[in-house]
Design a protein around this nucleic acid. Structure first.
Lengths: 226, 226
DNA sequence: GGGCATATACCTCGAAAGAGGTAATCCATG
DNA sequence: CATGGATTACCTCTTTCGAGGTATATGCCC
């Protein structure tokens, strides 16, 4: 490697469309300060590649063949919190956006944007800024105001009671202990837990605990747990 | 409150010896920049008091009547990571020291130290430094070198295999998934898990997950999970 | 070679977790 | 007032965890 430039930014791309990847590769030729250190089309490939190449930034498609990009994002964040992850997808669904931001994405770009804008976005992201496709600004406004308009089961805000339970889970407490702590039945705690897991789209209490601890550290002002 | 000084440092004391507490109160009169915002003699009192007063620093005795100070420390860290916790105890046991440092204590002082030194220690701790009683320096050396000399069941280093498992747990994986991932039996994973929990003195996988995620964030260079 | 730690596997057993469903109460908002 | 969310509780059922125990093979250090 030539040691001429200070240090190239390392970029990793996860997308299951070979043609799209080719497009990005092409595009990156106009960004000499960015080096593409790896590509992946699946979750496994992505994690393997990322663990080896340790990129500065990951361009991540949400819809892959097997797993979803959200999963990958949730796997990357805890392991390598310093890696920036920018979502690059076709989905302008409010749900995907909120989930990605909640999971700690550095940016959310739509695939139909102009190549130049995309490059600009990546450059800003590398500087640590949070970037967002223009078309999503209005959506974000709604999200930040907590005025999600869609079906209740997908709200991104937890109720007071749920927050108390989440806090307890994040300390490793069992359902029984939480019940005792809050003066309710263990069965009721389970009910809450089930709803919490469905809403947060997390699989079990361990993921929940890790997620909360991430949240409270990385974005105390934005976290969903007041 | 008089708004004369910039802002007093808030200190919270947890110790079940009223007389010792009185001694500290006395001592703090010589530290006008430090304000004692609360005291507690038990775990419950401590957590309640801390959650209300939000001190900058907690002076924590390890041996309390009911719970141990270690427990309190483990409860404080995840909830209020910004609060500094300085252990103040009679125990010069290597085990207590390592456990406290592992759990994120800012300092570890012995109760037999000179009051002036104690005050100095607290002042340094408030500035974010890690403080340690002189008498423990040698012990710490041994600890950091991983040359713990005591019984094997209490070693503070995890084996390679155990680390792999811990990493997986920290991502919310179930034993079955880990088994598949590592190509071993779920039963074997369980065996490892049991040993890991015994060694780390953690109660369940949730605590383990949170602990690991704390470690990797707060002290990437010192963490027990290589 | 004799310990000792590690890693593997299998066994039982009880506790904990999570998914389902039903249902009652309270409270806010339309 | 009606609808719907939040909170509470109880039911069943399956899966997962974690604590015991036993056992074998490997490799390392004294």
């Amino acid at each position: 490697m030539s040691s001429k430039e200070h240090k190239k930014h390392k970029l990793f791309m996860v997308d299951d469309h070979p043609v799209f990847r080719r497009g990005i590769r092409q595009l990156l030729q106009f960004a000499p300060e960015i080096e593409l250190v790896g590509e992946a089309a699946s979750c496994d490939e992505a994690l393997a590649g990322i663990s080896v190449t340790r990129p500065d930034l990951v361009l991540l498609d949400l819809r892959l063949h097997k797993n979803s990009g959200h999963e990958i994002l949730r796997l990357i964040r805890p392991q390598w919190p310093e890696i920036k992850v920018v979502i690059l997808t076709v989905s302008d669904a409010e749900e995907d956006l909120t989930e990605a931001l909640r999971d700690g994405a550095t940016g959310y770009l739509l695939k139909d944007m102009e190549p130049e804008e995309l490059l600009e976005g990546v450059r800003h992201a590398l500087k640590g800024e949070i970037i967002l496709s223009q078309r999503l600004r209005s959506t974000l406004g709604r999200v930040l105001n907590g005025t999600g308009r869609d079906d209740p089961e997908k709200k991104n805000v937890l109720s007071r009671r749920e927050c108390e339970i989440v806090a307890a889970v994040a300390q490793g407490k069992t359902n029984k202990m939480i019940a005792q702590l809050l003066g309710i039945t263990e069965e009721t705690v389970k009910v809450h837990m089930k709803r919490i897991l469905r809403r947060t789209k997390l699989k079990n209490r361990v993921e929940l605990a890790v997620w909360v601890n991430d949240q409270s550290r990385l974005a105390p002002a934005t976290r969903a747990i007041p």
